[in-house]
Design a protein around this nucleic acid. Sequence first.
RNA 1: CGGGGAGUGGCGCAGUCUGGUAGCGCACCUGGUUUGGGACCAGGGGGUCGGAGGUUCGAAUCCUCUCUCCCCGACCA
Length: 437
Amino acid sequence: MRLSEFFLPTLKENPKEAQIASHLYMLRAGMIRQSSAGIYSWLPLGFKVLKKIEQIVREEMDRAGCQELLMPTIQPAEIWQESGRYDDYGKEMLRITDRHDREMLFGPTNEEMITEIVRSSVRSYKDLPINLYHQQWKFRDEVRPRFGIMRGREFLMKDAYSFDLDQTGAKLSYNKMFVAYLRTFARMGLKAIPMQADSGAIGGDMSHEFLVLADTGESEVFCHKGILEFDVPADDVDYSSDLQPIVDKWTSLYAATDEKADEAQHAELGDSLVTARGIEVGHIFYFGDKYSKAMGATVAGPDGKDVLIEMGSYGIGVSRLVGAIIEASHDDDGIVWPEAVAPFKVGIINLRAGDEACDAACEGAYAKLLEAGVEVLYDDRDERGGAKFANMDLIGLPWQLVVGPRGLKDGKVEVKNRASGEKEELPLDAALAKLTG
RNA sequence: CGGGGAGUGGCGCAGUCUGGUAGCGCACCUGGUUUGGGACCAGGGGGUCGGAGGUUCGAAUCCUCUCUCCCCGACCA
């Protein structure tokens, strides 16, 4: 993509409404534009990142044996009345009436909808287990949206729902999601720690929140420092094998959000205690037959008798992750994208657009990178160097290829690593080899 | 939902107290000089002051109502 043709409305100055880094940089880097409180348009740069995250989530869910589908944003009130949540949900639920005076709502989550789908088509225990997910926009009419997309009213969420014959099966499904979540967040360059969460009426230990550690996180978290060193399961992890040891390991050491903090534990841990700030990006929980019971979702068991389906649900805040990643990875100059989610891998800076040698070198590099399948943004605008550097640092592409008349005289270009700030002068070919490698 | 603050070109703000018909910086357009960390000079375009009503010869400015946005708190993927 040539920057001269790319819709990238960056801002030099700080918009006053932005209070935290991710919000500020997303606005300044032209990733999002606010429409109304807690509702945003995703501009091309931001949308690219959102898609990258969505794809990683998809790959890891599929790897874990889940199947993707897509449920509507607008749901009928009936199924919510059936589960009893139509009244419970209160003002957070955006209610709509259609032209036939039928009560509808913009879905804040999809337990009812998925239960409705499964109960009407799954009749036998032989059809289980099954885990269905989608990545769809949700709406929760928050009283006070804030922090940009981190706590918007409209947000993109991946929600998966598992259906099992019994609790033993549900536990297996739960463990798969636990492992998939570890992998998903790690792939985005994040340190995400599973922490015991409220498991509601069901009880037990089958509910975890995944918190990304970032200095600017919204809540205080505590954990044993050993957790930070744990290995994330590799991509060849066998989801059909017993995953319990992995789950046990990750839950063996103390980790808690401030609501669940245990002062006694803290004292005991001493130097091993890490106090940090975190952002919740995922939540998995088992809720048994809460919805299957209310909505009559049963299957015929091996003995021919109907049994209620055991369910769990597993959420990931996809749009929130964009903000969480920025919170975890930025500096005073702007965003520092982990390569896996970067909107482009390389940014080419032409320091003297219009200069024959610079143009030729840049065009050549641009063509070769594209040919090699590297996502590249070429700043071909007629701007001064300083403006280009500042802009490129702001949007945070992992690599910058700087081409100017000074270096070109010696046949050299500069490759800068955005994260480390490390710069290397080398011949163009060597630079391209490095960036395509 | 309680408490506070703010709405003036795309962005950031001044002007409001003490009414006289809108200004600054950035951005944008034209020309020129520049060009390795957000250049300079000259010229130029764009707002009717969130909205409605009222007071007045005259309202961004005073009064009433209303909408929206932001911040703190309680609440949440």
